[in-house]
Design a protein around this nucleic acid. Structure first.
Lengths: 209, 209
DNA sequence: AAAAACTAATTAAACGTTTGTTTAGTTTTA
DNA sequence: TAAAACTAAACAAACGTTTAATTAGTTTTT
């Protein structure tokens, strides 16, 4: 879908407020005010609040698929090197799209078969298959251990990053980093998450220590 | 606080619906219907919906503090053995109180200085200090590596378990376990989480492999 | 080229519901 | 019989959505 300037303003406002307050917590009047448009424009352009949420997903979910295509064929990288690229890719995407990921986390908790629940499921499945292919390739060639619970490893990847994002204020406080500039902190968080997760995966997957 | 039978029924209903639908998504009429009482009883007993949420926290948060007291003094357990006990304790409490933990996750996302945000912060800090003491003791005696980001390890513990709970349907599906009895699946999940996290911690903390 | 018809964007106001809470009255308990 | 427990009804406020009117820009007709 292509969106006009006004529609994009509404989607941006909705993304922000849905992320902070949740779907039910953010009213259409809140969103309209944030986007600096009339309330009726939301129904006019998107039909309903529900459909606006779907538009947010439509607009954002394109950019969060992991890039696996060229990775499998790449013969310059070791097996663990490929996994590392995927980890960096995931951490980057999560940090750059924090608001949208917060919305996904929230929606995931709701036990309901909405269209959005389906979208999230497909997205997670696709990302899981990316990692699975990489790991199984490494297993076939003896570089990785057998008997790896790939879904559980994925759970640790997703869970650690999610938890870091939702509790970043806590991380700041516990490390006395409250003085730090926001941009600088995001960089630090990205770097530390990357190193931490790469270590976890290497230790869990790799045969050689 | 001590609660009457009716009050407990309301708290149970509120916990359930807040966990599924979120604070804004669950109406007081929903909760009243679930608890099989008149709507007015919520205001009568708790004052407001907000205060009812606080009562849920008051009633539940007592049981989710990690037991560290006897653990530090125990000289029958190795350092990593003590960490393992703490991991099992955490996994057990999370799984047994899934609904309440879902509420905590949701509340953690809201960027607001509510009384509940303060409660969660204190709880997390206390749990963090438990793990920190255990790890620093191990470091002092040379059993554990130096330069461990304890907050990040805690993030992986909390994040992995949280993600497993919120996406357990996905885990089921990806492992073709949809046929399995619910109680049986909870046991399996508990067991696998425990093994997985113990491995992660051992590899990350321990000097000997 | 002027006039008429039409289209899309935008608005303020109103719509009917649902929201959390309160009231005023009734029943139950001790 | 006084206090506590409980209820149906009503309350104002907020909710998502619709309406009717206006504006501005474009297209068609004459």
């Amino acid at each position: 879908m292509e969106y006009s300037e006004k529609q994009i303003a509404i989607i941006n406002a909705a993304e922000k407020l849905f992320a902070i307050k949740g779907f039910d917590g953010a009213s259409v009047r809140d969103i309209a005010h944030e986007a600096d448009i009339n309330v009726a424009m939301i129904s006019y352009y998107f039909g309903s609040k529900e459909k606006l949420m779907e538009a947010v997903f439509d607009a954002r979910s394109q950019h969060i698929r992991l890039k696996i295509e060229n990775l499998l064929a790449d013969d310059k990288l070791s097996h663990i090197g490929k996994v590392n690229v995927l980890i960096d890719d995931y951490v980057d995407k999560f940090i750059h799209q924090q608001e949208f990921h917060r919305i996904m986390m929230r929606e995931q908790m709701i036990e309901k078969d909405t269209p959005i629940a389906g979208l999230i499921h497909d997205l997670k499945k696709r990302n899981l298959e990316s990692i699975r292919r990489l790991i199984e390739e490494g297993q076939k060639q003896g570089a990785f251990k057998k008997n790896i619970d790939i879904v559980l490893m994925m759970t640790t990847l997703v869970g650690t990053v999610s938890q870091m994002i939702t509790a970043q204020h806590f991380y700041k406080k516990m490390n006395n980093l409250e003085h730090m500039e926001e941009v600088e902190f995001q960089k630090l968080m990205r770097k530390r998450l990357s190193i931490h997760l790469k270590n976890l995966f290497k230790q869990s997957l790799s045969n050689e220590q």
